[in-house]
Structure formats: C-alpha cells, structure tokens
Amino acid sequence: MAERMHTTPLPVQPEPSGWEKVKRFISSRVRSGGSRAKDALVPGATAAIAAVAAYAFASIIIGHSEPYFAATSALIALGFGRDPHIRKALEVAIGVTLGILVGDSLQSLLGQGYWQGVIVVFVTIMLARFIDSGVIFTTQMSIQAVMVVLLPIPPEGPLSRSLDAVIGGIIAIAITMITPVSGRRETVTGMRELFRSTTDVLRELSTALRTHESRNGWTALIEARGLQTEIDTVRTAISDVHKAATYSPTRRSARQDLDEISRTFEKTDLAIRSLRIIARRVITVIDELDAKSTTSDDVAKLADWFSEAADAVAVLGRSVAEPAAPGRHRSLSIARDALGAVTTKLTPTQLGAGTLHGEALVMMCRPMMVDFLEATGSDHSEASSYLPRL
C-alpha cells in the first residue's frame, strides 16, 4: 500500500483591504506620473520657449495685437513627443496653417456666424481628407478653422492669423532643427537586444543538437522568426537618427557613426534571415538522427560550434555599445577575430557532419558567418577569406 504524502499547505495571503488597494493605486499613479514628468522636462521647456518666442515675434516684430495662433501653431507643430522630428513638425505646421488659412479665406467671403462655421468646418474636413489620410491631420485643420471662424476678427484683418500660424510653424521647425536630438541610445539599446536574442537562438540550437531535442529546435525557430519585431524596431530608430543627422546642424557630426551602425545592422539582418533557415535545418538534422537511433555524440561538434558562434556574436553585440569610434573599432576588431575563428571550422569534415542534412546545415552556416563578419566592417572578400576550402 502506497504511503500517503503529507504536504503543508501554503499560507493563504489575505486579500488587501480597500484602503490598501487605494494606496497601491495612488502610489502606482504617482510613480508613473513622476516618470512621465521627468521625461517631459526637455520637450516641455522646448515647447514653452517656442510658444512664447512665436507670440513675441508676431507681436513685437510684426506688430500683431493678439497673435494667439502663432503660439498655438508652434505648440502643435512641436508636439510633446520625447524627440521632435523635422518631417512631423513640418506636416503638422502645414496642417495648422492650412486650417487657419481656409478659415480666414472663407470668413472673409461668408462672414462670421454659426452657419458659416458649419460650412467652414465641413469644407476644411473635405480638404484635409483630400490632402492626407491621417485622422490627426484632419482634426488639426478642422479645429484651427472653427477657432478662426468663431473668434472675433483681429484689428489687423482675418489673414493676419494665417501669418501668425506660419510664424509659429517656422519657429517650431527651426527649434526642431537646432535641438540636439540623439536617438543613439535607443538605437544601441535595440541593437544590443537584437544581438542578445540572436545569441539566445544560437545557444538554443546548440542545446537542441546536444540533447537531440527537436522541441528546442522548434523553440529556436520560433524565437528566430520573432526577431523580425526587434529588427523593425531598430530600423525605425536608425531611420529617425538618420533624419535628425540629415536636417539638424547639431547632428551632422554623427553621420559617420550612423553609417557604421547602419552597416552593422543591415548585415546582421541578412545573417538573421539565414539563421531562420538554419534553425529549420537543425530540426531536420535532429529528426534524421532520431530516425536512425543514433546518439548525440554524432552531432557533438556541431553543437559545440553553435555554442562558439553564440559567444562570437555576443562579442559583436557588445561592440555596438561603445560610445567612441576608437573603442568601437577595437571592439569590432576583437569581434571579427572571434567570428573568424569560428568561421574557419565550417567544413562538414571538421564538424563531423556525416549525413546529407548535416552537410547541408554546415553549408548554410557559411553565408551567415560571412554576413556577421561583414557586420564588423570587413568587406565581402575579406569576410569570405575566413571560409575554409571544402
């Protein structure tokens, strides 16, 4: 008769009282609010300066009595994102100016009143939808138009508000261009995460070959396919930095740094595409070995190779975090040596690939490693020179 196992029940945690829930909610809101306020310090200060500068310019230089639309146009064009972007500021400034211009023009023709307001807003919405498909663009134009048509006409005349909007937009764009925006932190963070995930996939493939577990291979394949999200994130971050470096005088010096990071990213993207195919081939190799009832020793060298490749790719991932060019170049050189040492082993004979699928797996790894080597800054001929003769 089997003995009954006696277990001690886990203590039941008491449900928090209503007051405790309220305190937790307030504490959570305070923390999140404080974090948002901290992130908004620079954008908030920039927006405040832009709004007041636009108002002051229209009032003092142009001589407008109440240039509210200069301030509102600058605020809306800048927005409250963490980093302003030239294209976004330009699009918003155009939308705001068009909305005010349409309102001014129709008001001068139709006069001021409620039914005129209906016509102005309707025409503005139709025009906005014709120009752009974005909902925000349409909303901005219609809001500015209805404000124009319902507010009293300024002493300088109705079209003066359109000039105020142009002033606000120009000041917002100028501030965006000279603001020292740097997206390198986001780019580097994304690249490090991408390399970390790629390293995990390689290690998972090593484990799958070592243990003859195709489930690990499927896990690696799923993770490799999931890398596309991280790739898209990094590509967006690089695109944002490229725009800033193109239009902003304060970021011109970052172009060389950006070019190197872009090259590393593009070659890594190509390597990861190969990695997805390799992960699928690893599953096939394991299934073939299981069908023949062989031992894991038959692919031990392949498993060791994937582990070494993971270490080498991890070195490449750490090199992108180097802030200065000399340090980054030294790190890339170390990564090149590590990747090259792994690449020199890529022959079916050295890795003990005695089956057709095993040989195919080794051959698939060769272009992947060439791409990783090119990601360190090597040209194609230099990277290919690491491949051993077959």
Rank of each mutant, 00 (worst) to 15 (best):
G317A: 07
L339E: 00
M369W: 05
H242Q: 07
R215G: 06
P180M: 07
V96W: 01
M364D: 15
L270F: 04
E66S: 11
L194I: 07
F130S: 07
H380V: 04
I238R: 01
K267D: 09
C365Y: 03
L78N: 04
Q13Y: 05
V313R: 08
R328E: 10
T246L: 10
Q116Y: 02
R4K: 04
H329F: 10
M191E: 13
I131F: 10
R129Q: 12
T284D: 04
S105T: 09
D297T: 14
T347E: 09
M369D: 08
A383N: 02
P155S: 12
F130E: 00
R203N: 12
L351Y: 01
I26E: 12
I167S: 01
S105W: 03
E20N: 02
S142P: 01
D232E: 13
S331F: 10
D232K: 08
Y247H: 13
M126L: 09
V102Q: 06
E322P: 00
E359P: 01
V12E: 10
I334Q: 14
L159P: 00
Q13G: 03
V30R: 10
A93E: 00
P348C: 06
S296C: 01
R82K: 09
A71S: 14
G217V: 05
V181F: 07
L332H: 09
E322W: 03
S384K: 06
P67G: 08
G18V: 10
L289N: 14
E91W: 06
S307D: 14
P14D: 13
L351R: 02
K21D: 07
I125H: 00
R36C: 06
L373W: 05
L356W: 11
C365E: 12
I272W: 02
S197T: 13
V146I: 15
V12M: 04
I153K: 12
S296A: 11
L127V: 11
I153C: 08
S108D: 15
R225T: 09
I334A: 14
T344I: 11
V30G: 05
S17L: 09
R281H: 10
E359R: 15
I136Y: 12
T229F: 10
S385Q: 02
K267M: 07
G111W: 01
F80M: 13
F80K: 05
I231V: 09
S253D: 10
L150S: 08
D379V: 05
D200H: 08
D290F: 01
T138A: 13
T7A: 11
L194A: 09
R24S: 13
G63N: 04
H64K: 07
E288W: 02
R330K: 15
H329D: 14
V135A: 10
I171E: 10
V148Q: 04
D311N: 15
S293C: 02
T343S: 12
V241Y: 07
F372R: 00
D269G: 06
G190H: 05
L387G: 00
R36A: 15
L390R: 12
R185H: 05
Y247P: 01
D104A: 14
R281A: 05
T189K: 14
K301M: 05
S35W: 07
G44H: 10
R215M: 04
G18T: 11
I222V: 15
K88P: 00
K38Q: 10
V96G: 07
P154R: 03
Q144V: 11
Q256M: 11
V135S: 06
K23E: 03
T7M: 13
V320R: 09
K345T: 14
